[in-house]
Design a binder for these strands. Structure first.
Lengths: 116, 116
DNA sequence: CATGATGTGTACTGTATACTACACACTACA
DNA sequence: TGTAGTGTGTAGTATACAGTACACATCATG
């Protein structure tokens, strides 16, 4: 699903329970013009900046990394991590690229549990 | 060290052994104007596009991921990997962010050697 | 039935990105 | 001494990014 399409679906869903989730109100809360948000939701504009996407994620109670991915972006803190040790993390990611989720999760878990 | 500074150092180093590595010749090989490359090397221009940075890496026999990192960028194939499973890889990277190289390398090695 | 809120269309803006084009002064060397 | 090559300065360009500003028609309701 596209970014705009997803956004509209999610916002409409929340709006059914709470009229606060109108285009205008949400636009107000994230600090952009209503017409701009409207266009984004209908894919007449490309996804907004990382900052605005993060604000949207917060308001719509969505995961920021997920929403940024839909927007075709990668969180700048992740980019920063990679840039700090590019060869190391590049190798790691290319290695894990096609591994099933559970295998990757195992790495996360083992590292977190300090088995190193 | 900055991108431009590094570039110049590396090119000059190669030039000492081979006059092919003049600003003009290198610019020609990577497909940009000499004055543009000159300005980049003196940090009068920001680092070039990913494509041009890759071409530079090839000509200067440098690691592309390393050079892209110096340029403040992340390889688009890595961004693509993250975007394919954003929450998974975001967790992974934030978890490994402060781990020493050898710990991460151990993961890379074990995955490569098929112990999964 | 007036009033407030809603979604959207049109037009425009400022800044950044990623360069090109060309002229110029200098150097090497045949 | 002229000619080929070198590095660099100035000026300009096309495209993308990230929006704003405002008017308009529609809808709901008190």
């Amino acid at each position: 699903m596209e970014f705009g399409e997803y956004l509209r679906k999610r916002r409409e869903e929340l709006k059914r329970e709470d009229p606060q989730f109108s285009v205008r109100r949400v636009a107000g809360r994230i600090g952009v013009e209503p017409s701009y948000l409207s266009k984004i939701e209908r894919s007449l504009q490309p996804p907004p900046s990382e900052q605005t996407t993060r604000a949207l994620a917060e308001v719509l109670d969505e995961d920021a990394d997920f929403l940024l991915a839909l927007a075709g972006k990668v969180s700048s803190d992740l980019a920063e991590i990679i840039r700090s040790r590019p060869r190391l993390f590049a190798d790691l990611l290319r290695q894990l690229k096609d591994m099933p989720d559970h295998a990757v999760l195992r790495v996360v878990r083992e590292v977190r549990d300090g088995e190193w």
